[in-house]
Amino acid sequence: MRKKFLLAFSLSFFVSLNWAAAAGFDITDIEGRQIHFDKQPKTFIVANYIANFLMVGGKDNLSKVTALTKDGWEDTRYGEYQVFTRSFPILKELPSIGGYHDDILNAERILSLHPDVLLIGRTQYTENNQRIKTFEKAGIKVVVLDYHAMTTENHTKSTEILGKLLGREEIAQAQNKTYKEALDHVFNIIDKLPPEQKGAKTYMETASKGVARYGNSYNKDVLWGSILKNLQAANLAENSPQPYLPLDKEFVISQNPKFIFLGGSIWRNKSEGDQMRMGFTVPEEQAQERLEKFTHRPGWDKLDAVKNNRVYAVDHGSLRNMADYTFTQYIAKQLYPEAFKDIDPVKNLHDYYAAYLPELKYDGTFMIHLSKTK
Score class of each variant (00 low, 15 high):
L91R: 10
Y100M: 02
N188S: 11
P89A: 12
I140T: 04
I132C: 15
G98S: 05
S96R: 08
Q173G: 12
I189V: 15
L183Y: 08
Y147A: 01
Y147L: 02
T152G: 06
E160C: 03
Q82G: 07
D146V: 15
I189S: 04
N129R: 06
T159L: 10
K180P: 08
E93T: 02
S96Q: 09
V142W: 00
I120T: 00
A149F: 13
I104T: 14
Q82A: 13
K180A: 06
V144Q: 14
I104R: 11
E127R: 14
L183F: 09
Y81E: 03
S112P: 11
T134S: 05
N106Q: 12
S96G: 07
L118S: 08
R122Q: 12
T134R: 00
A138C: 07
I171T: 06
I120K: 06
Q82S: 07
Q82C: 10
G99H: 00
K157N: 09
L111A: 15
D191F: 07
N188I: 13
N128L: 02
L91S: 01
L119E: 06
L91Y: 00
K141V: 03
Q175M: 10
Y78L: 12
T85I: 00
L119T: 10
R109L: 10
S87F: 01
L94S: 01
K137R: 14
Y125E: 03
K141M: 05
E181G: 09
I161N: 00
T151Q: 03
R109P: 05
H101G: 13
I190D: 08
G139W: 05
L183A: 02
I104K: 10
E170P: 06
E80L: 08
T156N: 09
Y125C: 05
N188E: 15
P89V: 04
T159M: 03
L113T: 08
I120L: 11
I140S: 04
G98H: 13
E136P: 04
E153R: 09
H101R: 11
P115S: 00
I90M: 15
P115W: 04
T151C: 10
L91G: 05
F135R: 00
R131K: 09
R109S: 09
F135C: 14
H185V: 15
A182V: 12
V117N: 07
V142A: 02
R168G: 12
P115R: 08
R168A: 09
K157L: 07
E127N: 13
Y100V: 01
